Amino acid sequence: MPRADVLSELLKPLRLTDTYCSRWRAGGSWGIAGADDSHAVLHHMVRGGCHLTFDDGETLPLHEGDLAVFPHGTAHSFASAPGRATTPLRSVLPDLSPGTSASVTIGSAPPDTEILCASLHYDPTTEPALYRALPRVLVLRRELLRDEPLLHLTLEHLPRDITRSAPGTPLVSLRAFEMVFVLALRTAMERLAASSPALTALRHEGVSRALTAIYASYAHPWTLASLAQEAGMSRSAFTRTFRDLVGEPPARHLLFRRLQEARRLLADPAVPLQEIHQAIGYGSHVGFHLAFRKELGLTPGEYRAQRTAPASP
């Protein structure tokens, strides 16, 4: 069996379910402001350039061929230049239904800029803690993308393919953007690790082995000593390095991963409540019950009732 790798295990709980994509043509003076999104967001500069601006004022230029990935959909605007007046995204695209797409033309002059955008939908309860620690935006420049042939070619062909009306287009679009998303994160992990402690953790030889163990084998009775042994480090060095890079102690990270899996199982009424503690590595239902309630403010039974209740008409 192939050995698990940390990026695959990190993304495995993050089940992408659908995508909304849009193709923008812009010219002259223009600006669009988006709100916080609970989805991953991609912007690919097909032609021309723009400027990204966050709510705290940070501005980043995007040039032709660049790819911007917002792992957790942080609010931002994109405009022809910094300081431009912006229009709320929802007033331009009031219907952002998953599985659909749109083409938009904006600006005060004939279009000279083209942007491919996508929102990748996933259940926020499946979001791993380390994924949340990724930077709010990862910018992969054109020169870097050219060294990644599969990612580069997929991006090159996407603008034409998403506008097709052929059968299966929504599924093809989802899988294509999913591949772009994973390839972009892999490239960032390999090439941009120095820009983020979370990316450094994924690249760190010892910490990445421990993270893989936590994500892939969360039901194993791990201890600090056994995780340090898995990482090939002393307990003190492992604890310090893990906390510095991941942002929390190993035991806390393992707890979150187990409770994350518990929430997935609780959302499935076919899984007996009394069996869940064993499936996620707890020796007793009582211990699981107490940990779940302490962290989430609900008992496992209450959480299941909320997640499985019929939707209001």
Rank of each mutant, 00 (worst) to 15 (best):
D112I: 02
T74Y: 13
L145S: 13
R90H: 15
G168A: 03
P170I: 02
L89Y: 15
P110M: 05
P135I: 12
S165A: 09
T154A: 03
P159Y: 11
Y131D: 06
H152N: 11
A85Q: 15
L93S: 11
I106A: 11
L144E: 03
R164I: 12
R84I: 12
L155A: 00
A166H: 12
L130P: 04
R142M: 06
P111S: 14
V182W: 08
E148S: 13
P98F: 00
L153R: 09
S77R: 13
A184F: 04
A102G: 03
L145N: 07
P98N: 05
L185R: 02
L144N: 05
T169F: 02
G99V: 01
V137T: 14
A75T: 07
R136N: 00
E114V: 05
V69N: 00
R175Q: 07
S173T: 09
S97D: 14
M179Y: 08
S173W: 10
R136D: 01
V182T: 09
P88G: 12
V104D: 14
L116S: 01
A176D: 08
T125R: 15
H76L: 05
A176W: 08
A129T: 10
E143Y: 07
A102C: 05
H121L: 07
R175S: 12
T105P: 00
Y122E: 03
P167Y: 04
S173L: 05
P82S: 09
